[in-house]
Design a protein around this nucleic acid. Structure first.
Lengths: 229, 229
DNA sequence: CATTTCCATACGGTATACCATTGAGGGTCT
DNA sequence: AGACCCTCAATGGTATACCGTATGGAAATG
């Protein structure tokens, strides 16, 4: 049974079919990111199915999808658990950002030189943000725009999975009040303005270098982690 | 119903459970990589299920897994097709190799400095290879050893999906006789020996640089592509 | 009290059935 | 002949049922 949502369209006017599986993915993702389900918690298919009012089949698929996103992890016996990120996991994510995003910036540079409007709109929104959580989301959006502009579909897909895990990590830091609040918004805005300025005036390789610096300093902004590994 | 294969163990002696879904993944992957199913071909769940003697459920999961590996692609109506890689797709893969592998080499360098035995064993096997296909597989194995030694699990996972797509691409080039055969084995061996030498004697950053060069020259070795994009 | 054995229950893997949607072909009307 | 519509088979989405296995705790054992 597929329910076609008549009223929901992408900007491209492509109709979007929403399956129970998709809905289950969204709801579980939300619950995990919001910390409503704690790390390590068992997501039993039947329990989730009953709770969300669907059968086990879409739940099964949803769990599979969430594993790909890095929010859920399967034991060797096929049980699904909410992922419990460690500082080591975070380091892995950081390494990947550092490997991928500068390259993406270089690839995106020619296109962005002509049109930075999406980035500028994002900065404007950031400067109006009222909560720390909004700022971090808009920050990730900013980076996603660049990944998207790189024109490399695989790179963007990788980013989506990285982003999920980053949001998981940042959300947990935020809830345990371990994120600096002071000046974050202003710093984010000015830093991003610098990036946009580079896209407009500098060479792709310079953009790549700047993005690298930007991520390095983002890392500095995060709290010192307990001994990794 | 789960069949536990008593005789199959990882090196870590962890028993491996093999499900019908896993088997279906393997068989379909093989058929796709061997070119037995042509690009663009529809993989209808019921047809595959009947052909392989399982129900639609494991087939469904297998198709999902193969999509993640990049060997299958879903239309917006949920139909699964064998992926038809374009030169543009190959360029994307190449960009990602270039972004990830040098970093992996740098991370793996400290560990490999102490013990390159796996790499050396691979080189020995390569020097004894008799077919071009064997050489290309051993080449990918060589790179996988380094990704593995990087200690970054996410990086290794990314590699696996890249590798599947690379094998798809290379396999098709091979079947259409577009791969250079002359001297390939000897060049691969000597080039890899150079990499091992670097791991033993050079700094991590030097290893990173060399890996970058190695991938650049690999790109040169491949046939010129028809106009990309 | 520590350890092992054993059993009931929870859970995942798979088969099957049913329904909605898709899409290609045939028929009809203009 | 061409455009339109209708129909029906093919296909995917979901529910449910069944079975084997894993798990955790009770009971038995030392």
């Amino acid at each position: 049974m597929v329910y076609r949502m008549e009223m929901v369209y992408h900007m491209s006017l492509t109709p979007v079919t929403t399956t129970r599986s998709d809905i289950t993915v969204s709801r579980l993702r939300q619950e995990i990111l919001d910390g409503e389900i704690s790390p390590g918690h068992l997501l039993a298919e039947s329990a989730v199915a009953q709770r969300l009012g669907v059968s086990r089949v879409p739940v099964r698929e949803a769990l599979f999808t969430l594993e790909r996103e890095g929010l859920v992890e399967f034991s060797d016996t096929g049980r699904a658990y909410v992922k419990d990120l460690t500082p080591h996991d975070f380091e892995e994510l950081y390494v990947l950002r550092l490997a991928l995003e500068p390259v993406a910036a270089r690839l995106a540079a020619p296109g962005l030189r002509a049109d930075c409007s999406r980035l500028e709109k994002n900065i404007k929104a950031t400067s109006k943000a009222t909560t720390l959580l909004q700022v971090t989301h808009l920050d990730l959006d900013f980076h996603e725009i660049i990944l998207d502009a790189s024109g490399n579909a695989r790179l963007l897909k990788l980013w989506h999975s990285l982003r999920s895990e980053l949001e998981l990590w940042l959300g947990r830091l935020h809830r345990s009040k371990q994120l600096q609040t002071r000046g974050t918004r202003a710093e984010t805005v000015s830093s991003h303005q610098g990036v946009v300025e580079a896209f407009k005036t500098k060479s792709p390789t310079d953009c790549e270098r700047l993005m690298r610096q930007h991520i390095l300093s983002w890392r500095e902004w995060l709290p010192v982690l307990p001994a990794a590994k």
